[in-house]
């Protein structure tokens, strides 16, 4: 198991290199001049030229990329062009907001999605199942930004119950968490239902019933644990995704998280900031994925034996 984890962590290195290369290329090719951006529109041509030279922006692409990688290995991802602060200091300042939102969103989604999926599967084709799956379809189909706007319209503008955006109190949490929770819960509910439906038809479920096990225990003890792998996968993917900043939701609710940081950095062509944020997102996503894979082993002993 330890060997497996080490190997997976080592595999992060090429992943990160690949990610930085792609981001660096895109930022290099997109129009706009960082030096101009830093000095402002009205700066004299000579000053911009001097800064370009100083920042090494005239060097060939591969030299620039090589310099970035070299510095990154030393732990120096540079300073933001916009705020002049160290990029990772900025990221870590923003991360708690994103982590909170992602955790609450996923928690809400799991608490709603898993039970709904289980009931839908055990009462397949019932009224509950039809209504739940219709709502789930709506939940996955509605784009987050649109949902967010609709919630603001209803709860902030019309009813005036909740703030339309910002960060600080519990009240600020409700709408963004609801927005993220709805779509995530819908995905989880659908996955739980289909996974449970498959498991319920297995022979070992019949064996459990033939032993005289109570129906509630048949479902929650015998079936659910077997149905868990796809559910964990979806929850993990969603969580990893949200940890990378729910870009649209954070923007709609002016939530000061990673997602908005990234959007702002891209707008300002703040290359070091974009680089660092993307690397950070890639790493968190990979770590969540690894955690999910480790969790598999605890759920299914057959997988555990493969990890050795």
């Amino acid at each position: 198991m330890r060997k497996y984890i080490t190997r997976r962590l080592l595999m992060l290195i090429p992943v990160i290199l690949g990610v930085t290369f792609i981001v660096f290329s895109i930022m290099y090719m997109t129009p706009g001049d960082p030096a101009q951006m830093i000095l402002g529109e009205s700066a004299p041509e000579s000053a911009v030229k001097a800064l370009r030279e100083k920042m090494g922006l005239n060097d060939p692409f591969i030299v620039q990329y090589g310099r970035f990688v070299k510095n990154a290995i030393m732990g120096d991802f540079g300073r933001s062009y916009a705020t002049k602060k160290e990029v990772f200091a900025e990221i870590f300042a923003r991360f708690p907001a994103t982590l909170q939102l992602a955790s609450v969103g996923v928690l809400v989604a799991v608490l709603i999605g898993v039970p709904v999926g289980i009931i839908s599967a055990t009462k397949q084709y019932s009224l509950f199942d039809s209504v739940a799956m219709l709502l789930a379809l709506l939940g996955v189909s509605m784009p987050n930004f649109w949902q967010g706007l609709m919630y603001i319209l209803l709860f902030s503008v019309t009813l005036g119950w909740l703030p339309s955006g910002g960060y600080g109190s519990f009240k600020h949490f409700i709408l963004p968490a609801l927005t993220l929770g709805t779509s995530t819960a819908a995905v989880i509910a659908r996955m739980t239902r289909s996974s449970m439906l498959e498991v319920i038809r297995q022979d070992y479920i019949r064996t459990a019933r033939a032993k005289g096990v109570e129906e509630k225990k048949v479902i929650l003890k015998h079936a659910l644990k077997n149905a868990l792998i796809p559910i964990i996968t979806v929850v993990g993917l969603q969580f990893g995704h949200l940890l990378g900043g729910a870009v649209l939701t954070e923007t709609v609710y002016s939530w000061p998280g990673i997602g908005r940081l990234l959007v702002d950095a891209i707008k300002q062509k703040d290359t070091p900031m974009v680089q660092a944020t993307v690397v950070f997102i890639a790493v968190t996503f990979s770590i969540v994925n690894l955690a999910v894979d480790i969790l598999y082993a605890y759920v299914d002993p057959r997988i555990k034996s493969q990890y050795k």
Binding site: Q202, D203, Y204, R206, T207, A208, R209, A210, K211, G212, V213, H222, K225, N226, V299, D300, P301, R302
Partner: peptide, 20 residues
């Protein structure tokens, strides 16, 4: 069930719960 009347199923490969 399982007490006074019990049953052995056809396929032993699939009759046992793989995660217990």
């Amino acid at each position: 069930r399982g007490n006074k009347i019990s049953m052995i199923f056809q396929d032993p490969m699939t009759s046992l719960n793989p995660v217990m």
